[in-house]
């Protein structure tokens, strides 16, 4: 089935990139304009009839969200994964609700956790895991869990930890070098 997929990919999109490939497992990255076409064709032509997962990775350093759709075939249980990059700002991704009803829930979660919009998903604005969440979506890389926790729950009871490295440095006076060190380490 995977070979069939490769033929399909060659015919459908020119510039795809294989991320991982082994028997019964193919992961490719395609341009976002063509990703829906690839998914539709994979379902209709290559028997990838089950939607297993929709996931997102926040590639903040490149200012993109990498969306990944994982499809499976009930025929031979092979996996087909398609990835595409979307700009982080005002990220809008087509919904798959008409092909797979379960997509509604995956998309709701991504909407809530990453702030990715799926226009056309009727339930996308319903709260899923977080009720009444305000502020930046928590799965984004720029959301600081520690800072949130301190703000919401207060600081934890003071720790008594003494760092062995720091204690030894103080005790041996190793940073009290004859010529002041360029670098002071904690």
């Amino acid at each position: 089935m995977a070979d069939d997929l490769m033929t399909m990919l060659r015919e459908t999109v020119e510039d795809y990139r294989v991320i991982r490939k082994r028997h019964g497992y193919l992961h490719v990255s395609v341009p976002r304009e063509r990703v829906m076409e690839v998914i539709v064709t994979a379902k209709s032509r290559c028997g990838k009839n089950v939607l297993q997962l929709i996931s997102a990775v926040d590639r903040i350093e490149r200012d993109i969200f990498q969306l990944t759709w994982i499809l499976e075939s009930t025929e031979d249980a092979s996996i087909f994964m398609v990835s595409a990059d979307y700009p982080r700002e005002g990220c809008k991704v087509p919904t798959l609700k008409d092909m797979w009803p379960s997509a509604v829930f995956f998309e709701r979660e991504l909407r809530e956790m990453f702030g990715i919009e799926f226009p056309g998903n009727p339930r996308q604005d319903e709260d899923f895991l977080l009720e009444g969440w305000e502020g930046i979506p928590p799965m984004r890389r720029d959301f600081d869990t520690l800072e949130y926790s301190m703000k919401t729950y207060g600081e934890r009871r003071k720790r008594e930890h003494v760092d062995p490295r720091r204690l030894i440095a103080e005790h041996t006076g190793e940073w009290d070098t004859p010529v002041p060190s360029r670098k002071e380490k904690s």
């Binding site: 003494v162 062995p164 030894i168 005790h171």
Partner: peptide, 11 residues
């Protein structure tokens, strides 16, 4: 786990 001084001993 916190590393703590025991009996105020020096390294």
């Amino acid at each position: 786990i916190d590393m703590v001084k025991v009996a105020d001993a020096d390294p």
